[in-house]
Amino acid sequence: MVKYILKRIGAMLLTLFLIMTLSFWIIRLMPMSIFENPATPPDIQKLLMAEMHLDKPLFVQYLYFIKGVVTEAEFGTSVQIRPGMDVFEILASRIPPTVLLNIMSLLISIPLGIVFGTIAALKRNKATDNIISFLIVICISVPSFVFASVLQYVFTFKIPIFPTLYDTQAATFAGTMHSLLLPIIALALGPMATIARYLRGELIETLSSEYLLLARTKGLTRTQATVRHAFRNSLVPIANTIIPLITGIMGGSLVIEKMFAVPGMGGLLIDSIMAGDHFLTVSLLIFYSTISLITILIVDISYGIIDPRIRVGGGK
């Protein structure tokens, strides 16, 4: 198991390096000058360029960049959004709202998805299942920003029980959550439906499996057999859907943050791309990739914990 985890971490670091390289080159090859501000006098511009190695060939800049990241976790300086500010500091201030929003969406969608998927599978082809399955299709096919608009319209305008925008001044955590609830729900519906749909399929398959039949012929009641044999086995493949789910939430979050004026990473990424703040963009991309890779790592490891075929097979 330890070897399995170390292998995974090694692979993750390698991937991260490749992503860093790719982001750097793709963003830096974009036809946009780092300094677009005509107000900065040319000689000062020159000075700054020299200071940030921007006068050197791109490949040399790349080496400086990698060296900075690896040796002192130095990602560069913002030149447009917050000129002169360390990119890492900007990130740090923007991470909490995004993480809160994304984690909350995930934490809501997983248990609810499991509950609905289980109910649908147990009531297969009955009215309950048909209703749930219909809602699942809607939640999967409608993008989160549409839900966001609807929620915003209904609950901030028609029945104004929630604030329209994120409350940056909220004194308490409850206050913050109050203003974050609509974006959280908007983001959670899709992943919740995805989980419910997968679990329903998996559970229906395990419920008709031979080993479930054997569990019942042993003398287990239907409920005991379902809980002990069908349920856990159906969760194993669900672990696989968590990865696309998280990246999906982060992607949806880009737009949702803008809609609710949440001062998070999503809005920042869009702004920095538009403004051509290349160092900031590159570091944001790296940040997003790191989050995804860590999720994949966690899912892979927990996969090994739930499924002995992976654990025992790879643990020698």
Partner: peptide
């Protein structure tokens, strides 16, 4: 079929 009659992860 003993291959499918046992729970694979128990």
């Amino acid at each position: 079929d003993p291959l499918s009659a046992l729970n694979p992860i128990m």
